[in-house]
Design a binder for these strands. Structure first.
Lengths: 188, 188
DNA sequence: GTCTATAATTCGATAGAC
DNA sequence: GTCTATCGAATTATAGAC
């Protein structure tokens, strides 16, 4: 593996294990097997590394929901597609998705505000899907805010407990199980 | 307000806004209106403050689910009670609940391990409730792990989006809405 | 209880040789 | 591309006067 690749990978693991603030450039250098000063041959700053991780993932979530929003799917099919999107991105990038919900506070302005705007836009698009579903009668009449965040929360925390290797279900089965939960709850 | 009370309150707000690592003793002192050295007249260390917040809340969640577990409620009634417990504790202590899920990594050993064991025990008890419900037929047949964490995730993230003042629903209505979602999903 | 002063350490980042 | 050396700033915490 190239040093540049190893640097990115080890940094991601350290941010995941200890958090951005508790990870030092010296920690990163040690994992890669170089000196701290050499890290600056690859990146301008520690902030840059966090920025790349967060906005890289945020953009993929955002583009994903835009495609779903613009599709001709029914509201329920759109919800299924969002669940599928979340599972796919989380399984492919569990650490980055984890950073997305825990380390954005450490972005510097104006990037921090940009990040929050992006997240708000994502949530707004999801809310639109739920709203359309309620109005068309495909979904139950319920409070829009509660419905939006209840569904979002159940899929956003996937990263914290699901790993395909250790779980009793594979990603395909997980998608079915989670969709069933969101659509029908836990009662028979 | 007594200085000691103001110190606790302002520290909690700062930990919430910036995170534990990004909050300095000087920040805390400034909000309270004293010098940094004076903070040490009230607390032994910054770690102590985080420790108190996290274990104080963790204990309340733990005691709550123990009482629910030992009750004669049916599985569905126990789930409703856990939802109620989460809403009550989150509305009463939104910042502390937020720290519970975002700042535990910054506990020092052995407290960090103790915290994780407590959380695992809490999750285990909740899993037991779901398991009993599936076996009794009160709940749908579904993967135990997925069911446990799907429900837990939907209520654990309450702190990040719900505030009684700004929401269209009050805590009582929120409890009904969330219970309906967990039991029956979003479809009619 | 609150202050000033400061110890002791750590951190992000840079300079410049090779 | 990698190193040694180091700067300058920030941080937790303590000592001791008032």
């Amino acid at each position: 593996m190239k040093t540049s690749e190893k640097l990115i990978l080890e940094t991601l693991k350290l941010f995941h294990e200890r958090g951005f603030k508790a990870t030092t450039m010296r920690d990163i250098a040690e994992r890669v097997g170089i000196e701290a000063a050499t890290v600056y041959n690859y990146v301008n700053s520690k902030q840059y590394l966090l920025d790349q991780f967060l906005f890289g993932m945020a953009e993929r979530f955002y583009q994903g929901i835009i495609h779903i929003e613009q599709s001709t799917y029914s509201p329920i099919e759109k919800i299924k597609a969002v669940v599928s999107l979340n599972i796919r991105l989380t399984v492919e990038n569990p650490y980055k998705v984890g950073l997305l919900v825990s380390e954005w506070k450490h972005l510097q302005e104006p990037r921090r505000s940009e990040f929050l705007e992006n997240r708000k836009a994502y949530e707004g698009k999801f809310r639109g899907i739920i709203k359309a579903g309620i109005e068309s009668g495909d979904l139950r009449r319920m409070d829009l805010e509660v419905a939006t965040f209840s569904v979002l929360s159940s899929i956003r925390w996937l990263f914290s407990w699901y790993t395909p290797e250790k779980s009793s279900v594979n990603p395909i089965e997980l998608e079915k199980q989670m969709t069933d939960f969101i659509l029908h709850g836990v009662t028979p």
